[in-house]
Write a protein that binds this DNA or RNA. Sequence first.
DNA 1: GAATCGCATAAGTCTGTGCTTATGTGTTAT
DNA 2: ATAACACATAAGCACAGACTTATGCGATTC
Lengths: 104, 104
Amino acid sequence: MMDNEIFRALADPTRRAIFEKLAAGRMNASALREGMEISQPAMSQHLSVLRTAGLVKEERQGRFMNYEVDPEGLALIAEWLAKYRAYWPQRIEALKVLLKDMDQ
Amino acid sequence: MMDNEIFRALADPTRRAIFEKLAAGRMNASALREGMEISQPAMSQHLSVLRTAGLVKEERQGRFMNYEVDPEGLALIAEWLAKYRAYWPQRIEALKVLLKDMDQ
DNA sequence: GAATCGCATAAGTCTGTGCTTATGTGTTAT
DNA sequence: ATAACACATAAGCACAGACTTATGCGATTC
């Protein structure tokens, strides 16, 4: 059950911020730190958690380590969410947005 | 920002189990405890967290407290997920399932 | 109205987790 | 080779959070 690691990873606001920043594009750990007031070890540890959860994947490039969003993790959340489809009221705007954004 | 409470609430496996059980239908706190090896105060505290996160809503009925899934919280997760639509590869089966289930 | 029931809250304990400083490992530059 | 760089890992600390036992509070039952 990967649910646990996924939701645990996203439970931390700093990690969500890192993930959001990564969503803007592939980036190395140092670039991620810019404007984030976070120590280098802390960043490394957060990235490790995100990686274990399947939310992020890494690729070595020289002495840099490039990180990017891993769709795998997002898919797990979508699967989890789909289990509760019965509870989606038609009028919730967010659903329409989600559908419009995804279906194209 | 409600993201924090949502993901924090779902980070605990016991709370996810409670939520999943509630998805089967409206239930009071005692009924939820059945077959779950969890103390009464622990259940009450978990439900409080889920409620604050917007994942569950309650309604008093005599001396019972009925709980049910609150779509509000699910909508917040869907909104969060929609922000990363750019990372959905077409072939992910989960996405298709989600779309099929929702769009009908 | 007293006892019981369903649940919430209080207070304390123990574990997990996010941080720190220090150090290690591999890569590039000089 | 040596220094500098990008990042990972180790160890320790402080706080958050999930549990416990005890008690409180409304509502029902007898």
